Simulated assay, not measured.
Amino acid sequence: MPGRLPLVEQLDGLRSVLSRNEVLTDVMTRAAALELPGWYVTAGCLFQTVWNVVTGGPPTNGIKDYDIFYFDGTDLSWEAEDAVIKAGREVFAGLPAEVEIRNEARVHLWYEQKFGIPCPPHESTETAIDCFAATTCCLGVRLNSDGTWRVYAPHGLSDVFNLVVRPNPVLAPRAVYETKVARWKEEWPELTVLPWPN
């Protein structure tokens, strides 16, 4: 089980597992061409690919979309982000998947309206990834110009490989966590879901 291996071997295992999702590797290759500042492919498409492979399912099973985060604090206008989204539509045209691109420097401008609690401005893409509702989701991968992978995994990879979903009560409200895990549990009944702390 990769979740019990030394971290270096877990990273090799992660790359091996994620590479089985050809949509994901295509998204990463195309995303690199956009040259977005501080970008990562992140969220469900990563940990759900791992869950699929670990549980013997097709690598793309249950994945709703492929999220790309980037960080550009030089222009916080919607127009600047929308221009990137439109450029992305062309780059990702023809892929059998939805790709969502978001500038994490802008999240604090809309987060409270959507989730009912304020979000302090993020300082980087990494600080945005740190705020996912579950630590298991705090994962980002990008392709470097030399073809190597950069992996951001502040909580490690053991829970991801071991199908453990652990709450991360730093920003997202409890309801967001509970809604997400209810959906995931239907798709991946093998998950061990830890309760939100009181």
Score class of each variant (00 low, 15 high):
Met1Asp: 12
Glu9Trp: 07
Asp12Phe: 11
Leu14Phe: 06
Val17Gly: 01
Val17Cys: 08
Arg20Tyr: 10
Val23Phe: 09
Val23Asp: 02
Thr25Tyr: 00
Thr25Gln: 03
Asp26Tyr: 07
Asp26Thr: 10
Val27Asn: 01
Glu35Val: 12
Glu35His: 13
Leu36Met: 00
Gly38Ser: 10
Tyr40Phe: 11
Ala43Cys: 15
Val54Trp: 11
Gly57Val: 13
Asn61Leu: 14
Ile63Cys: 02
Lys64Trp: 11
Asp65His: 09
Phe69Arg: 04
Phe71Asn: 07
Asp72Ile: 04
Asp75Phe: 07
Asp75Tyr: 09
Leu76Gly: 01
Trp78Cys: 07
Trp78Ile: 08
Ala83Leu: 13
Lys86Val: 14
Arg89Val: 10
Glu90Gly: 15
Val91Trp: 10
Val91Ala: 12
Phe92Met: 05
Ala93Tyr: 14
Gly94Arg: 01
Gly94Thr: 04
Leu95Ile: 08
Glu98Thr: 12
Glu98Ala: 08
Glu98Lys: 14
Val99His: 04
Arg102Val: 07
Asn103Leu: 06
Asn103Phe: 07
Glu104Trp: 05
Val107Trp: 08
His108Tyr: 10
Trp110Gln: 00
Glu112Tyr: 05
Gln113Ile: 12
Gly116Glu: 03
Pro120Trp: 02
Pro121Met: 06
Pro121Trp: 00
Pro121Leu: 01
His122Ile: 05
Ser124Arg: 01
Ala134Thr: 00
Thr135Ile: 02
Thr135Asp: 01
Thr136Arg: 04
Arg142Tyr: 05
Arg142Thr: 04
Asp146Phe: 15
Asp146Gly: 13
Gly147Trp: 15
Gly147Tyr: 15
Gly147Phe: 15
Arg150Pro: 03
Val151Tyr: 06
Tyr152Leu: 06
Ser158Leu: 12
Asp159His: 10
Asn162Ser: 12
Asn162Met: 14
Leu163Met: 13
Val165Ser: 00
Val165Ala: 02
Arg166Asp: 03
Arg166Thr: 11
Arg166Gly: 01
Pro169Leu: 00
Pro169Cys: 03
Leu171Asp: 04
Ala172Asn: 11
Arg174Leu: 09
Val176Ala: 10
Val176Lys: 12
Val176Trp: 14
Tyr177Ser: 02
Thr179Tyr: 14
Lys180Val: 09
Val181Glu: 02
Trp184Tyr: 11
Lys185Phe: 04
Trp188Arg: 00
Thr192Val: 13
Leu194Ser: 03
